[in-house]
């Protein structure tokens, strides 16, 4: 039965394993790069533990986290109101908006097996109706904050090394270094999402949940082709 259970959750487990492996790989490669820089400046090499508990490592992790969660936050939000004809990533044209209670199976339209907060009314239903967006948005903001705080430490260490003025957190959040780190990640996320939406209109991957079935006409989106 363990094999069956693993199979039921294989997609999320697959990505969890990839994440851990990639994070370990990043920490090792980052350590080597950091120590090369240390030696070039006549400073002592650091251990792996020292490195993964430093702002140098955290700022690199956080800047990627924030951009990924921003990507999903925006994608979830934008697909409420915006559509792309023919894309399986989009609702059909004319279906923009948050939908009726009946369509969303909330309140008195909830099914017996619906989540309890979907059956509820008032603030609990409102919170649950937006829980995915709220969670993605919160993770984005917190990881962006972590990037800012850790980035300030790293930036100020370099400033001190070169005898230049240190920045407060507020000054750093307005600095070119902070926005360079931020925007270089955002641009790639927006490109990837946009291309996924556009290319999935005409391209297919047989068997993938992210694609229309191979023979589906280009003009059919997610809803009409079902």
């Amino acid at each position: 039965m363990i094999g069956v259970r693993l199979r039921q959750h294989s997609l999320s487990i697959f990505f969890a394993v990839l994440f851990v492996l990639a994070l370990i790989g990043q920490s090792v490669a980052g350590l080597i790069s950091f120590n090369e820089d240390q030696l070039a400046h006549g400073a002592a090499a650091v251990t792996w533990i020292d490195f993964v508990t430093s702002s140098e490592f955290v700022v690199d992790v956080a800047e990627n986290w924030q951009s990924e969660y921003l990507q999903f936050f925006l994608f979830i939000f934008a697909t409420i109101w915006l559509v792309q004809a023919g894309s399986p990533e989009s609702k059909e044209v004319g279906h923009e908006g948050i939908g009726s209670d009946e369509q969303q199976k909330v309140g008195r339209y909830a099914e017996p097996e619906s989540p309890s907060w979907a059956k509820a009314t008032g603030w609990r239903q409102t919170v649950y109706s937006n829980s995915l967006l709220i969670t993605m948005g919160a993770i984005f903001l917190l990881s962006w904050l972590a990037q800012g705080i850790a980035g300030q430490t790293v930036f100020n260490a370099e400033q001190a090394e070169h005898g230049q003025d240190l920045l407060t957190l507020g000054e750093y959040l307005l600095s070119a270094d902070f926005w360079n780190r931020t925007l270089q990640n955002w641009q790639s996320e927006f490109l990837a999402v946009g291309s996924m939406v556009a290319l999935s209109i005409v391209l297919r991957q047989r068997g993938s949940a992210e694609s229309k079935p191979v023979g589906t006409p280009h003009h059919e989106g997610a809803v009409s082709a079902e």
């Binding site: 955290v58 986290w65 917190l142 850790a150």
Partner: peptide, 9 residues
């Protein structure tokens, strides 16, 4: 992960 990163920062 977030608490860790914020804590280090």
């Amino acid at each position: 992960g977030l608490v860790y990163m914020l804590g280090i920062g």
